[in-house]
Design a protein around this nucleic acid. Structure first.
Lengths: 352, 352
DNA sequence: TACGCTACCGAAAGCGCTTTCGGAAGTCAA
DNA sequence: TTGACTTCCGAAAGCGCTTTCGGTAGCGTA
């Protein structure tokens, strides 16, 4: 079904059809309604390629999937994409998702999408402290929004969780319960979210006079398995120096840690408190339920969508609109895996 | 950068540029190389809208995200999309990912993508036994591949794991270890993967003369939390009738079950064996490591991509190509959460 | 020299839409 | 009845490509 067919069918010109469907004011009300009804009845919808070509717009946002093929699948990805795509759909924009095939690099992929006019804007996630994608996009002039930040986040648009503050809050919370010996399982320090959390831990411990024992801060823990091993290692510390609380860079890491503690015959939430970050659903099911810092990935995706849309529409008029930067707070969610040190079972936190 | 500019720049006509870049044989080798070099140097790439309009092709596959917004994020989604997008990228096709905004239904979304010519084929996942999307696509004439199957999978293309056989294998495996009282935590019976696994359990138990005690089969367990509750309920069965092994519809469910068992003071892999399905990374970290049936989501995504590409290219010639159906076997992966009933710790499976 | 043949390139139509422009009909006041 | 004004629609150009067709230049052959 093309506009030509519809025009012939109604005895009108193509231009009139187009203007009627696009609500131009110079079309008689009766005509407009007749056209719109016919279009509905015949299931006509303008070809998006033709429309975009004629109007010179793109109306598509690109998203490049993180390349962690074999790795632990990003548990948020589904929700972020859902939020992002939902928001875009509200304005009839599309989301083009691209992978990085083996042997190519991410910049090539982005560049191809941009220069072939397939996407008019970008959202990127899993941001590194130094991120080649951000560098590329910054100089390319393409509107983009970063979920996360780089080390130098001044002159582009991003949306991030306040990871540092969240870990400060976490330390404060633990200290408020009486914990003094707090260890930290940190992630890949090249990823900025992990780095920021690490910074928050260090800052809060320094400011609040906490004791960072030897081996209390372990970097490079990216999944549950490495967390399990690291925790087992942590337990080799003599009992008097052993931490009473364990702050983990993600829920997955926290769960790995919990398993190691269980395996060593310790009871999480009594012999050692464990705290995660993310708010994964599984945190509610583990024993005990995991205290965590919650972030809403769906809403993050939506907000990223809003931001990139705003950027694209405003960059259509002004050449380089001022960056829009948003910082959200994670929500500390107390459950049963954190309790005051030396808590007996009867006193335990019953949250969950 | 447009083809017109490039043409003027080189003193050639647009047609010549186009044919040179598309390797037409009637272009002098010298000219072709000159054009290709200039295109590379100037970063020219044809506008995909214009190209698609002119060629009358679409070269984009649609994927509609499962609508489980609040729900447990699909852990495979990232990998499936990665596999799918990688395979499509190899042939310069795109992946358009769409969400279903609130208040709309999935069919509308699909229909819009198809009739506006945004996508030329579809991949759908999370298939129900009766699935409106499949019904719609079947009558629409759009090439599509289903990851999973409906109840009546005869006349369309799909790619599925042999869920029923996998659970038959699981039961056989458990019986081989000496288990006779095997319970099953089944998922949502409207989802076909859950239904098929349930069928496999029932069939194997019947054929092998296993005892399905009262309350051994529990449906509707879709996440770790409901699994935890269901398992607690299972433990109310008197010890003599209590199952010795627990077959779970997914790894997430298995992990929830393990937590409940731990919480009740039982040792998984000794007092009760637990088996999952999926091969989630976290299954390696839980204590004990989770015996599971593994499926490779990345490869599933890739194969779906191959299939839908084949379908699209062949449906360009013949009107309705014969469906392509693929059934893969899940890989039984023994780890420590399953052992013969009544195993003492020293004899336990050390897998992992 | 004339012929046919190949190699190569330009011209032009067309893909399905949008949008500007101009003009025909209708409306109203003088 | 005329003129100015509005209302509404058709004509046509153009978006950036692809692809067919036709024609010219250069070649070899007779």
């Amino acid at each position: 079904m093309s506009i030509a067919r519809l025009a012939r069918h109604l005895g009108l010109s193509e231009g009139t059809i187009s203007r009627a469907l696009n609500n131009y004011p110079d079309i008689a009300k009766k005509t407009r309604e007749r056209v719109q009804k016919a279009a509905r009845d015949l299931g006509y919808r303008p070809s998006s390629s033709a429309r975009r070509l004629a109007r010179g717009v793109i109306e598509t946002i690109g998203f490049v999937l993180p390349t962690c093929r074999t790795q632990h699948s990003d548990p948020f990805l589904a929700e972020i994409l859902n939020g992002l795509a939902s928001e875009l759909a509200r304005h009839d924009w599309d989301l083009l998702v691209s992978a990085v095939p083996e042997g190519q690099d991410e910049i090539e992929v982005i560049d191809r999408l941009v220069s072939s006019g397939k996407v008019g804007g970008f959202v990127i996630a899993r941001t590194y402290r130094q991120d080649a994608r951000v560098d590329y996009l910054r100089q390319s002039g393409v509107p983009f929004v970063v979920q996360g930040r780089t080390d130098d986040p001044s002159d582009y648009s991003w949306l991030d969780i306040d990871n540092e503050q969240a870990f400060v809050d976490a330390v404060t919370y633990l200290r408020g319960l009486g914990h003094r010996k707090i260890a930290c399982l940190g992630g890949d320090p090249k990823m900025n979210f992990a780095w920021q959390r690490r910074c928050g831990y260090l800052r809060a411990m320094a400011q609040q006079g906490g004791h960072i024992g030897v081996g209390y801060l372990i970097d490079g823990i990216t999944d549950a398995v490495s967390a399990k091993n690291a925790t087992a290692h942590l337990l080799s510390i003599s009992k008097s120096d052993r931490p009473t609380a364990l702050l983990c860079v993600t829920d997955a890491v926290a769960i790995g840690a919990m398993q190691a503690l269980n395996g060593a015959g310790l009871t999480v939430g009594r012999d050692m408190s464990v705290m995660g970050f993310d708010g994964l659903p599984i945190g509610l099911a583990v024993q005990p339920a995991l205290t965590t810092l919650h972030q809403d990935s769906y809403e993050i995706g939506r907000e990223a969508g809003r931001m990139v849309l705003e950027l694209c529409t405003s960059s259509a008029t002004s050449p380089s609109p001022s960056p829009r930067q948003t910082l959200w707070q994670a929500k500390l969610t107390p459950r049963a895996s954190v309790n005051p040190p030396g808590t007996s079972p009867a006193q335990q936190n019953q949250g969950g």
